[in-house]
Amino acid sequence: MRGNPYIPYPALLKRSYFESDDFSLKTFEFELLDGNRIDYIPGQFCEISVFGKGEAPFGIASSPTEGHILKFTVNKAGLVTTALHEAEEGSILGIRGPLGNGYPVEKFRGKNVLIVGGGFAFTTLRSLLVYLLNSRSDYEEITVIYGARTPGLLLYREELFEWEKRDDLKVILTVDREFPGWEKQVGFVPQVLERTAPSSKDCYAVVCGPPIMIKFTLPVLEKLGFKPEMVYTSLEKRMKCGIGKCGRCNIGPKYICKDGPVFSLAQLAELPEDY
């Protein structure tokens, strides 16, 4: 992060490609110019600038272990994301970050890790998974449960199918309903989680997904014996400055951009339901 936290690094858009078959999600790979580098951990985010349109926050989908290319997967929704989707490879945009706290990866050492993801919220979970796999022996069992509405909406499909083949990792992929050619799990993430019933012993769970998925996943985790301080989730709210100044992303006295976006359920239990 720069001395002036509001000034983005100029960033070259090296590659961009559709990530989902409905063209709503696109992955962007950036390289910071002028030799700039940022140190980050999985779960942190950046503000991407499309100059003239504005900035918007996105979780970093690459892992710091992958080198200096920063990767983001973005849903086309508003002013900035639409402009981003329209940006051509080779254009210069701005990146400000890393922002936020990130996942407590240090705590995961020597423990089991359960990653539960839904829809296009798998971005920082990808970062986390790649990060963990990079020093695989530091962690015990790693389980991934990831679902989307359709097979074509699963992010990073090729990587997922490769990870599925590994024997040091359990990957369970699911889609909401039957789909021609789909022979993996069918069902919503909470149901699949319940069926899979991973052990909560010495296990940290990291959950990211649409609010409705989170709502139904958390009780399942509780039933499986996960303690609130062992379950982490990443929150979203409208953000602007990303450094806890502009005001809008607070939940009680905490700012998602600065004190989050990652919170344990134990931390969230202390905060008002204002999200």
Partner: peptide, 29 residues
């Protein structure tokens, strides 16, 4: 002190500014 950050676009140039915002407005959040 709440503020909004917005870009203003002109031909090939522009600026980013912060302007007062209010938590009383619906679009704030």
């Amino acid at each position: 002190y709440c503020f909004d950050i917005q870009d203003v676009e002109r031909t090939n140039w522009g600026y980013r500014e912060r302007v007062w915002d209010s938590c009383m407005f619906p679009i704030y959040s």
